[in-house]
Write a protein that binds this DNA or RNA. Structure first.
Lengths: 343, 343
DNA sequence: CTGTTAGCGCTTTCAG
DNA sequence: CTGAAAGCGCTAACAG
């Protein structure tokens, strides 16, 4: 049985059924005033035909797809949350969110750009600093708004939404210092990224504020993944004076650290204190629960939305090109007072 | 400074630059053969103009938006994974995935339907049994393919992709029985849902196979959330003979149970064994790690994709309207041998 | 293999 | 406030 294929009703069908011109129907649909009597007839016709306007056609004619693109590196907990919040909040404005995951792969990211361009997104939200310059330039020239989050990328005309990475990191590390730790490792993530630099700067700030020289030998530059956290611990644990506490620049790194601790019977916080950037569900159910800096994904989504609307409703340029969202710093049981290593 | 608004190049621009008709260019774009010399000129023109085809226009003309809708109840770990896998794998076929989250709210779900209809998705993927009948009927009539996952919903013409809920649950509960447990609680989730029924059926099957009467008093019907898991434990822990093991129908319920155990110093697996449906990251980092049935989100996405392509490439109806994907059953340290309660 | 042409469904002038 | 008409960028016949 071939699928029935009754084509959807068009605005013309509605106009005929309602006995008026498509212009009037179109205006009604788009929220302009029409004579009450006409309004009623249109509404009935729409219901009878169960008409729904064709977004493609209207987007094409009005040269506005009402779609925005979100380019993420990964569908991890943070990005899933961001996508969810964003898609929901933007839907309220009649905007559609298209996602693409680049997996930190340039070829895939290139493909994503092609995808977004093809779909004529009116804005592109991303944190990818290695985006092809030509694509970006082209998109900006065509009026596509570029919003970067969680990263500072130097595009002319790009809006930015970031969290207070440095300050939040400062608070976390300061707490570790207050607890008596001085050998505090920093597992930094990818230091080519602004985020990583800022988080490390917060680590340094904390030492400076405490008038203690920062233990530069405990900086472990790496990538953002579990394997990196694990490798960091392998490295640290071979040292003569290993760190008594660790500040990890994202949650995946922390998970790698936790795995290493499990494997090597390292007990938190007695043998090691751990403070993580990013707060995820796993941290609430581990023993002990992991102290963490939570990125308020809801607020980030709202800030992005604000930028999107601001830049499209009023035509004035944004007052400030950068929005800063504050993180919550959660002290939990994975951090404890410094205790000299028992021999 | 108003945004520059150089309009994107059109296929006509390309045709002019390449010195030929738009028909030829269109054919080249869509993968038909063109004379090599022309091909080369088209490619150069496209590069020069940095042209990208307008998906809206082509979708409109060809009456195929190449978009599919995914309606999820929540952006939890499972659905985020599903979305990620699906979006990625479908993008390879040139298909776009639009998401909408209904939050188990009928009004929002209704809005979602309007959204998907408006965007002329060629398929709708969902697990929502309370969808408005009219919307569904209308969409099916218009040739929209409906694929349900993780649920059996009785739509004429709907494709279904499910996991082997009953069998996997049977395996999990059987293991608990093998470990000596007989008082095994079932926290079922919403029993109006097929999934919940199947998982409970698996629980029953295990007792039957072991020739033990199923402890019907340990069935706790509820919803799917953390609070439900917590409430279940409150209930169980007041019993004269509480369960020595629990089978939880999803991960959120299990997290609620874990919280209760933390609060009441219940040690897994000594005081209680726990087996959960759904496998999430938190279960790998809790102490002990939680035994769980993992839904292979990658395979589910592939199965859905297969249905989508099958039903659209060849016009024949699917051989079987239902695909079953096998779950992995992970035995972990949250389950242990039955030990009579110490008094 | 290529050029020509007729729309897809809608918005948006422009006159009334 | 409404109707008529001109396309938006592209695809899909059709005739070469």
């Amino acid at each position: 049985m071939p699928r029935t294929n009754k084509k959807p009703a068009t605005i013309t069908d509605v106009a005929i059924a309602a006995g008026m011109s498509i212009g009037t129907v179109s205006r009604y649909i788009n929220g302009y005033e029409v004579k009450p009597a006409n309004k009623e007839r249109i509404e009935r016709a729409i219901a009878d035909l169960s008409f729904s306007p064709n977004a493609l056609a209207s987007g094409m004619k009005s040269a506005d797809s009402r779609m925005v693109g979100l380019l993420v590196p990964d569908y991890d907990e943070f990005h899933a949350g961001l996508l969810g919040n964003l898609a929901t909040t933007l839907a309220q404005e009649g905007l559609v969110t298209l996602t693409y995951c680049h997996e930190s792969n340039s070829a895939v990211a290139k493909e994503a750009m092609r995808f977004f361009r093809t779909h004529r997104v009116r804005a592109l939200i991303m944190s990818w600093p290695d985006a092809d310059r030509n694509d970006i330039t082209e998109m900006i020239a065509q009026g596509v708004q570029i919003v970067t989050y969680d990263n500072i990328i130097d595009f002319a005309g790009g809006d930015r939404v970031v969290v207070n990475n440095r300050e939040a990191s400062f608070k976390a590390v300061s707490e570790l210092i207050r607890l008596g730790h001085t050998r505090i490792g920093a597992v930094t993530g990818d230091l080519r990224r602004w985020t990583a630099k800022e988080r490390l700067a917060g680590w340094r700030d904390a030492f400076e504020a405490a008038n203690i020289p920062a233990p530069e030998d405990l900086i472990f530059p790496c990538d953002w993944y579990r394997a990196d956290g694990h490798r960091a611990m392998e490295h640290f644990w071979k040292m003569d004076t290993p760190p008594s506490a660790i500040f990890a620049a994202n949650y995946q790194i922390s998970l790698g650290i936790l795995v290493f601790c499990q494997e090597n019977d390292i007990t938190l916080p007695d043998d090691l204190s751990l403070f993580s950037f990013d707060d995820v569900e796993a941290f609430h159910f581990s023993t002990p629960r992991v102290a963490a800096i939570g990125q308020p994904v809801h607020d980030i989504a709202q800030a992005i939305k604000a930028r999107l609307l601001e830049n499209n409703k009023a035509k004035r340029p944004a007052t400030t090109p950068i929005s800063v969202v504050d993180c919550a710093v959660h002290f939990r049981e994975s951090i404890g007072p410094y205790r000299p290593k028992s021999v």
